[in-house]
Write a protein that binds this DNA or RNA. Structure first.
Lengths: 214, 214
DNA sequence: ACTACATATCACCAATCGGTGACATACAGC
DNA sequence: GCTGTATGTCACCGATTGGTGATATGTAGT
């Protein structure tokens, strides 16, 4: 066989420019895209490499595999809570613990609604408690709790009220409602599509918060 | 080759007794087991067939594939809400809407905590909104909403309060807390392991409900 | 006893997965 | 110009997946 050997045909696809940092970034970007658009079910070396337009081998070389890639995403997300709630801080100091919690809850709701990537990660944490994903969860949790503590200042919840428990309930509700809205558009018979629908949710949250922390 | 043909070796494994109904039941039972124990990630024809101790072909024959199997599970779960909240009804008529909602919320919490299968299905609905799973969600939603309406009788929520929205928030919180507890044992910095942890959650729910419906 | 059918199992398929070793090629240092 | 190394691509591996056609076998009806 004097026809072109396998190696001769090697030049079918243009190789990427040889820029290690750019390739690393491309992979990370593709990973976040895949996760945000298709969820963790599609998340794998093959899919990410295809999306990034490079060979999957590079994922192993530059991130040591999927786990390292997830960690890299987690690293970028470490400050998500802080960044997304920054506008809340700009409103000036709240006058009461109730007002603080209302701002935080509604701000968290909006921030989560606008970020499909974090939505997917939340869903991932719920559905597939693998160790690497757990780290994402705990780091985000810590960020949230720490942020609340920081904003709180010297404001104190009413005497005898278990604020961490109440806040966990509120955060849980917000997370599930947003994720359910993204995937099914409704929850427990409540439509979650139009802005009017969300106004009902916000009103309910306001009532609950005001009542609990009154 | 006069050695045993492939077909001669066919009798390695004992075939199941030829009982169509029993086999159908075994498959459905195995499917629920797999789902409850390992979650939807492991849920597939191969796994279920292995668990049921039969050939996967039978899943296609008797249920028309995975979708039909999921539908069968959904059919059995149609009355889950009603069944699991039956003890609540036995307590006698509530004296107020607030008391009704408190009973329902706490009853729903306990029922969900005790049923890993439904927990997995909830997680499934959240993470992988495929059409067949959606049907499970909506049927359960309808069951819940209908049950509330039925129990409510002539009790009415306070004037001007958006009860469906408030209830959706509460149900969402309960669902996510239970699922998070099952998978990670904590949520938003709140431990969810011991009965004492859960008592904090129940107390928080009681406060929120009482305050909102006062 | 013989046939027809329902039941169950097996054997294989193409596709996809995560993972790895071999090869190609651009570029930097000598 | 030659060589070594970093970067990128390809080709393959074994395992697993959902899916199907062919085959064996128990059982009921004649």
């Amino acid at each position: 066989m004097s026809e072109p050997t396998a190696r001769t045909a090697r030049t079918k696809t243009k190789p990427r420019p040889r820029d290690r940092q750019a390739t690393r970034r491309a992979i990370l970007f593709a990973a976040k895209e895949v996760l945000a658009e298709s969820g963790f079910q599609e998340f794998g070396v093959n899919t990410v490499a295809r999306r990034a337009g490079c060979d999957k081998q590079l994922i192993y070389r530059y991130y040591g595999g999927l786990e390292g890639l997830v960690d890299a995403i987690g690293g970028e997300l470490g400050f998500w809570v802080r960044d997304s709630l920054r506008p809340i801080a700009a409103l000036g100091p709240p006058s009461s613990y109730a007002e603080l919690m209302e701002r935080l809850a509604l701000g968290f709701l909006e921030a989560l609604r606008e970020d499909p990537l974090v939505q997917r990660i939340v869903a991932w944490e719920i559905a597939a408690p693998s160790p690497e994903v757990q780290r994402l969860a705990t780091s985000r949790s810590r960020g949230l709790v720490g942020w609340i503590a920081e904003m709180r200042g010297d404001l104190a919840p009413p005497e005898g009220l278990d604020a961490p428990a109440v806040n966990a309930v509120l955060v849980a509700a917000i997370q599930l409602l947003v994720v359910a809205a993204a995937s099914t558009g409704q929850f427990a018979g409540l439509r979650l599509k139009t802005e009017k629908d969300w106004e009902r949710v916000r009103a309910a949250l306001r009532i609950l918060i005001a009542a609990a922390y009154a």
